[in-house]
Design a protein around this nucleic acid. Sequence first.
DNA 1: CGTACTATTGAGCGACCTCAATTGGCGTGG
DNA 2: CCACGCCAATTGAGGTCGCTCAATAGTACG
Lengths: 247, 247
Amino acid sequence: MSDATIRALSGAVISIADIKTACRDCSLRELCLPLGLDEPDLAALDQIVKRRRTVRKGGHLYRMGEPFQALYAVRSGAMKTSELLGDGRVQITGFQLPGEILGIDAIDSNRHRCNAEALETSEVCEIPWRRLEELARQISGLQHQLLRMMSGEIGRESQLLLMIGKMSADERMLACLYNFSQRQAQLGLSATDIRLHMSRQDLGDYLGLALETVSRLFSRFQEEGLLTVRGKYVHLTSLALIQRRLG
Amino acid sequence: MSDATIRALSGAVISIADIKTACRDCSLRELCLPLGLDEPDLAALDQIVKRRRTVRKGGHLYRMGEPFQALYAVRSGAMKTSELLGDGRVQITGFQLPGEILGIDAIDSNRHRCNAEALETSEVCEIPWRRLEELARQISGLQHQLLRMMSGEIGRESQLLLMIGKMSADERMLACLYNFSQRQAQLGLSATDIRLHMSRQDLGDYLGLALETVSRLFSRFQEEGLLTVRGKYVHLTSLALIQRRLG
DNA sequence: CGTACTATTGAGCGACCTCAATTGGCGTGG
DNA sequence: CCACGCCAATTGAGGTCGCTCAATAGTACG
């Protein structure tokens, strides 16, 4: 019998798995959908968050065209979302770290319009959309946070648009690294020692560059003393220096 | 005394201006925020839509950094939203036609993160955000439509991302023209005879191309028999031909 | 320790940009 | 009404940034 079933049969019962999953006990609470909710509202949200799901590296959380059932919140690991272009060309539209939400682009059409793939083995919380939408009507703070997160997603995409449309290759790379730095810091990690969860290819497909260009830029930045690279690990010499180069 | 004041003093009174503005009488009802609302809900929405505002060609509805107060629905005309890059570089993030919503990228931060400028003299409906958010809590259909429109915006931006990041210049142009065609058709206009509301510069700033490239592409498409151009008017020879070129 | 994948580096090319001159459209004032 | 001026659009010439193709080096994993 699944956790979900137990909950459906008797709302008060909370299994051990539930406790581990519960939003109220989650360290990402203040970065994720529950931001701003008080205790009773948190409990209500916990009621609908169905289960924790694990996606192995390279596995898909959902694929383009699949019917839209739920949003997903990243709990651990890292994901990427990508769009395809018939002949195999790929545009990565975002990398999602813990606390971030996947699937909101599908609300409109009831079908996923991108692929969501795990960059490394990841855990996500599944939030059934029907029930979330309903709950958002009852809990104003939840509606507010949902709207905020969707608006934030629009902002992130505009930002990326500006980068790809109007920045040179090196500006894009630096802006991207700076963004990773900020997001790591927000998660309580180092702002200068970045772990890249994705391949050079992915980075290129995100920034609208060839993977060779990404590699060359890493080398050049290293020569210029902006950073040091060792495989997936990048150390930023000086955030101020990078900020200055970005204007 | 403004319409808003009259309404605030006596909810039942409806001025002539209100009648003309009323969502229930608006031909764009089914393309805009009211989609799916029934009569009483429509009336409630009409209560909060503050007034009709006119923006002259080249005028700004709002500017980057200004505090966020309201969403705007385009009623007539055409707008563009753009982001800037310090040194003057511009990325246009969208063109908005009647029935489309402006401002949702600002919900997150309470500040507008782009400029909204009229491509030609336009009328917009102003929808105070505080009251809309509140009303969305009461009217499930309104919440639903708001979420759908925000999700749609995310989809449009992903689409543009894919175009700019992974398509060649001519593919971008064609995809853009095809998109304009579909949107004109949705408004009940011709799908083959397109009126461009924006300059070549704007088109370039939207597609991540130089204005000269846009101009050259128009000429080349014309040579190839895909379309004919006369200033702001473009006639698409065959939609099927264009679809085929887009894969 | 080999195998396969990922990353780096080099050489050459081409798409698109930049700069510049010309043409066309349109409103304004003589 | 026409001439002028202004701005938008077109077209040409040349340059460059980033891509493609290709070879090599490094790294993970059985």
